[in-house]
Simulated assay, not measured.
Amino acid sequence: MNIQVSQLRYFLSLASTRSYSLAAELCNVSQPALSMAIRRMEEELNLTLIDRKSNPISLTEEGEIIASQATKIMEGLSSLEKLASDLHDNHMAGNIKLSIIPTLAPYILPGLIKKFSEMYPKVELIVEEETTKNILNKLKSSEIDVAVLVTPVEEKSLIYVPMFYEEFFLFTHKKLNKRHASSADLDYKNLWLLQEGHCMREQMLRICEHKNMESSNITYNAGSIESLINITEYNKGMTIIPEMATWNLSVERKERITPFNDPVPVREVSIMYHKFTTRLREINAIMHIIVENVPSFMKVRENFQTIDIAPLS
């Protein structure tokens, strides 16, 4: 099979205008040349793409399917041309869409946005907060270019690269007076967790061990880590928070943080993208900025236990 790019362009112009004369004018060729090119394309495919008996002309059922695929091919070629141009000019431009889970956003975005805008002023960084499930769907459909989330998450079409490991701590309304906490220290009737939909909620449940919670009375009504901390204090309970959430706490609040016994529970924070992405330069730039802003001890962990998230339906 030998289909030319020009044939795809002529065919799509005809499919769009439903007129040989208009399509030929758009493609800057003669009408006979355009008509002949499309006929040769039909011969190569052994399909009839144009219903030439209709007025105005229309596509056959097979033609509609081929037009849809041809559009994707031309969009891919356009992306390839842009990528080649950027590589040739040694610069990045345009926009890149990034999604991040809400429990990471407050701690990663401020530094990332500032540094990225300084280093790459011609690139518009479009950021949104989303749940893990929505992020995966948007990555697979190419609605976004890159994501920062918690892994492991196995998706055949997606690639993730771990950047750092974030430790979990027990936060209580009053000082625990212990060097390390264990599951035995958890008061399940007064344990506050995030709302459903947050992957960190699933990790918190795993730290608590499901078997100990079957008869507990737990309320899930916090939508953010900051809300979780405030609710815990107001209701004289306890909760589990990630390491970066402890950085900006007051001195008094930090005294009520207790690390867990070994193996220390952590979450693996990764950057994720589609395996066929054309934005690797921008993605690498984002990853390097994030990693540079993370303390070195978070990049390598010894004697830790990565807390997986539940499989997403």
Rank of each mutant, 00 (worst) to 15 (best):
M163Y: 03
S58P: 05
I231Y: 05
F304P: 00
I231W: 03
Y107T: 00
P265K: 14
I50V: 11
S13H: 02
L191W: 12
R279C: 11
Y107Q: 10
I309T: 06
L47E: 07
K275H: 10
I290L: 07
V127S: 06
S16K: 11
S79Y: 08
L49E: 01
V300I: 13
R201Q: 13
F260M: 06
D86S: 09
S270M: 01
I50P: 00
A37I: 11
P242T: 09
M92Q: 08
D86W: 09
Y120S: 07
F171Q: 01
P102I: 08
L193D: 02
P152V: 02
T71G: 01
H173V: 01
E166N: 13
E214P: 07
F304D: 10
D185R: 11
V251N: 11
S215C: 08
P56T: 10
S85E: 07
E243H: 05
E209S: 09
K189C: 09
H91F: 15
E226Y: 05
M92W: 11
R267Y: 05
R18F: 02
N261V: 15
Q31T: 07
C27K: 01
S117Q: 12
Q195S: 14
N217G: 06
F169L: 02
I271Q: 00
S6W: 03
G111L: 05
K299P: 07
S216G: 06
Y188Q: 05
T219W: 06
H198A: 13
L12G: 08
L280W: 08
L280H: 13
R40W: 10
L104W: 04
K122H: 09
E129G: 13
N230S: 10
L176H: 13
K115R: 06
R253K: 15
M119W: 08
V5K: 15
L112S: 03
T306Q: 14
K53G: 11
S54E: 10
Q7H: 15
R39Q: 07
R253E: 14
I113Y: 01
R279T: 10
V29N: 02
L98C: 05
M272C: 14
H88P: 03
P121C: 02
T103G: 13
A310W: 03
Q69E: 14
V266M: 01
T172M: 04
A147W: 01
P152S: 03
G76M: 13
V251R: 15
Y20L: 01
E243I: 03
E143C: 07
P242E: 00
P242Q: 04
Q69N: 12
L186N: 03
L170R: 00
A24S: 09
T239G: 04
R267M: 08
A184S: 15
L125C: 09
L228E: 01
H210W: 14
V153Q: 01
E61Y: 13
L47C: 13
L22R: 08
R281M: 06
S99A: 14
S58N: 09
D308V: 06
A181V: 12
E129W: 12
N55G: 10
E209G: 04
V5G: 02
L205D: 08
I240T: 07
A184V: 12
M298S: 07
K174Y: 12
A181T: 10
L112T: 00
T151Y: 09
E292Y: 05
Y188G: 04
E75I: 09
E252S: 07
H288L: 03
L191V: 04
Y234Q: 15
